[in-house]
């Protein structure tokens, strides 16, 4: 069997050890070679900093809570349904919604890297990418949830979704009590990012 021969050629070791300088170095070199466009870098940063984030996912959840026909379509074909709302793209090519109930609590992780539904939730937070979350969410999800202040009854079954392929998962949490008749906009304001990863609940109705 062939061996992965690149193991011993770690080109990055010639770069400056300081991370800021390391990024600057590679960016400068690629620009000078004409391989990247500095204006494109600004546009990419602007997209993920300002345009794509958990507000997108919150709109989907709020609509799922409000519109039963939408809810059914969402679970029938999540990718198509959220794409119709304008949420599609890189790291969200195949999306599945997961339904939290009294019986089942879903949480999402990527133990191998940091797979996450970018078009709905944006760039993952540091803790999602941390060794501790990646290592522990599959083995002791209830202890991890407790660190987020989430305690579940033992009768509730926990389902941990390890994103090992190109399917990206997000959770439709349970609708908070006391929100009957609320508009989608008002509901969306209750939906937290963590509630769509499964490590939190939506905010209470005030």
């Amino acid at each position: 069997m062939p061996h992965d021969s690149d193991d011993h050629t770690h080109a990055h070791s010639v770069l400056p050890s300081d991370a800021t300088l390391r990024v600057k170095a590679i960016e400068t070199l690629l620009i000078s070679k004409g391989l990247i466009d500095p204006a494109a870098l600004d546009a990419i940063v602007d997209t993920y900093q300002n345009k794509i984030g958990p507000k997108n996912g919150a709109m989907v959840v709020a609509r799922a809570w409000s519109d039963s026909a939408f809810y059914d379509t969402l679970f029938y074909d999540t990718t198509e349904t959220v794409a119709d709302m304008g949420f599609y793209g890189r790291q969200g090519e195949h999306i599945m919604a997961l339904q939290n109930t009294d019986e089942i609590h879903n949480i999402v992780v990527c133990t191998l890297c940091s797979c996450y539904p970018w078009p709905l939730l944006g760039i993952p937070p540091s803790w999602y990418k941390s060794d501790a979350y990646r290592a522990r969410a599959v083995r002791e999800p209830r202890k991890v949830l407790a660190e987020f202040g989430v305690t579940l009854p033992s009768e509730t079954s926990v389902r941990v979704w390890d994103s090992t392929a190109e399917l990206r998962y997000f959770v439709i949490p349970q609708r908070p009590k006391g929100t009957e008749g609320w508009s989608e906009k008002r509901l969306a304001a209750l939906v937290t990012r963590d509630s769509m990863i499964g490590t939190g609940f939506p905010k209470d109705a005030q």
């Binding site: 993920y48 937070p125 501790a132 522990r136 083995r139």
Partner: peptide, 21 residues
Amino acid sequence: DMGGRFGDGVVIPDFGKEAVF
């Protein structure tokens, strides 16, 4: 490939407060 590994300590949530970058 760290799923299940021991010894990584607690997870530190940001509760949505961390900057994107």
